[in-house]
């Protein structure tokens, strides 16, 4: 009784193993699976179908600049970006992606519309302070204005990422990564720029970016 059972289980497994379903695949190591399919089947689980995630644990990717998305996926794939959240979630998923798939992800998310969190921007005083930091920097600490590179409405510019509507919690944590890790996020001058940024300024600018008034 045991042998036929084992053989039939083995046969079924081999049969199933031979079945590929490219349009609904969650195989992140198959170069034949289009980026759009992986975005729908895998990435959407955390980042949302349109790059607008529900949870602030995961960054908003909608309307992000293609150059930034490409650089970050390359950094994850090559293990260059080693902040904990990035490496814990993204190293494995990106390790087998092809350049073509990465370009496909960049195009997919750049084409999505970013949504502002309905709960953002409730604290007027915090927003005012954040606006100040974003537009003028913190001169007494020699921190330059964020808007200089990220644009007046934080819409991003090429390799400078879009920050508008990004989850405040994610921004605060990434600013801390820039401040506290050496080489955790390569290819960016942010470590030097934000090193002296005070804690309250981080929270204020993150709240402002999350709310980004029209």
């Amino acid at each position: 009784m045991k042998k036929p059972l084992f053989l039939s289980a083995l046969g079924l497994s081999l049969l199933a193993a031979g079945c590929a379903n490219l349009q609904h695949s969650r195989n992140v190591a198959d170069p034949a699976v289009p980026a759009k399919v992986l975005a729908e089947q895998v990435c959407s689980t955390c980042h949302g179908l349109d790059g607008n995630p529900v949870s602030p644990a995961f960054p908003r990717l909608a309307a992000q600049t293609p150059a930034y998305l490409t650089s970050q996926l390359n950094n994850f794939r090559g293990h260059g970006r080693s902040d904990p959240a990035g490496s814990e979630y993204m190293w494995g998923l990106s390790s087998h992606l092809t350049d073509e798939q990465i370009a496909g992800f960049a195009a997919y998310y750049a084409a999505q519309e970013a949504h502002r969190d309905p709960g953002a921007g409730k604290d007027a005083a915090l927003l005012a302070r954040g606006k100040d930091v974003f537009e003028k920097g913190v001169p007494e600490q020699n921190v330059m204005a964020c808007a200089t590179c990220h644009g007046p409405k934080a819409a991003g510019n090429d390799v400078f990422p879009r920050l508008a509507y990004q989850h405040a919690d994610y921004i605060v944590k990434q600013l801390s990564v820039f401040q506290n890790t050496h080489g955790g996020r390569p290819g960016t001058p942010m470590a030097a720029i934000v090193f002296p940024l005070p804690e309250d300024a981080k929270e204020a600018v993150a709240a402002y970016l999350e709310a980004m008034p029209d």
Binding site: R26, N27, V28, A29, Q41, V42, T45, Y89, G92
Partner: peptide, 28 residues
């Protein structure tokens, strides 16, 4: 990523999706 705070076997929302999609996310 799948277990809430790393405490087994409690699943996160992502862990639940991993289970419901038949343990098929990733590569064999």
């Amino acid at each position: 990523a799948c277990h809430a705070g790393g405490q087994f076997p409690e699943l996160t929302p992502y862990g639940r999706m991993f289970k419901m999609t038949g343990y098929t996310i990733g590569t064999r």
